[in-house]
Design a protein around this nucleic acid. Structure first.
Lengths: 144, 144
DNA sequence: TCTTGACTTAGAGCCAGCTCTAACTTGTAG
DNA sequence: CTACAAGTTAGAGCTGGCTCTAAGTCAAGA
């Protein structure tokens, strides 16, 4: 129920250095300290860290995450701002997923190409393969 | 068929600074220069840049991309290495997609929650909603 | 000829996000 | 009582990936 910084680090996969850095950057205003000055992380705090990881993972810079956390502390007056932020992040995430899907197709083509090239011992010969030529066209001419 | 660095920048969405930086880092060993020392990018070179963008996009650091480009120049002796690299990147990409999918669920939950909160004018009240409680449980208890 | 704009180089500077160091305190086990 | 592990702070340093500056070259148009 109360974790030291080291235990919190283990639970989240971050380092103690990073946790202190996040606190310094205003990302952890909720973490308490005990009578001898040690940080005490609650399960709730771990939940916050997981949300931070999520927002970081979808590409938000730390200062924007901090903004969101500040809005939380300001209370219900910022509900619309927070809703809009999540909607925006959903958009970003959808774009990202679309982009990664395109990269996946390109990489799949490369795997096909190199598999054939390894079999033949020659990339130039593999590129003569009609199926691979057709696949390449499909992947590369998809306007993007 | 032959583009100046400025034209190549426009075509790829990179800056001329970045293109020169990439060359310095060994990512563009194929780009030629004309008699007066100006870089001339071919359509093929633009294709290389698009592949670099793809590899960067799936999270490869520039030095690893450079490694791949070096293998290309070494010829058919490195075909297996290149195949394995693409297989590895496919794995990474699949993991990334799975991770982003989880983030999407979390964000969708937040959008639902904040939509209700805005409607009620209170986050605390929205969190009392039974459907949202159930959704939260589903999203957050999915072990990860 | 002069100006303009796009190019060239070497190298410095910038930013985000950590990552580490030094010097010190605290709590527990032997 | 001492040793040790784990915590504390302020602040310096590192890495990746650009981003910009200075000083100069070059080609085409007025």
């Amino acid at each position: 129920m109360g974790y030291s910084i080291g235990q919190a680090a283990k639970k989240t996969g971050l380092t103690t250095h990073t946790l202190r850095y996040y606190e310094k950057e205003g990302l952890l205003p909720f973490v308490r300290k005990n009578s001898s000055g040690l940080r005490v992380f609650s399960d709730d705090d771990i939940g916050w860290l997981e949300l931070i990881e999520c927002l970081k993972g979808v590409g938000m810079p730390l200062k924007d995450i901090r903004q969101y956390i500040d809005w939380n502390r300001e209370g219900d007056g910022t509900l619309e701002l927070r809703l809009n932020m999540f909607k925006q992040q959903k958009q970003n995430l959808e774009n990202q997923l679309r982009q990664l899907q395109k990269y996946m197709e390109k990489i799949n083509y490369k795997i096909n190409l190199y598999t054939e090239a390894v079999k033949l011992g020659s990339l130039a010969e593999a590129m003569e393969n009609e199926e691979l030529k057709a696949l390449k066209k499909k992947v590369y001419d998809a306007a993007g």
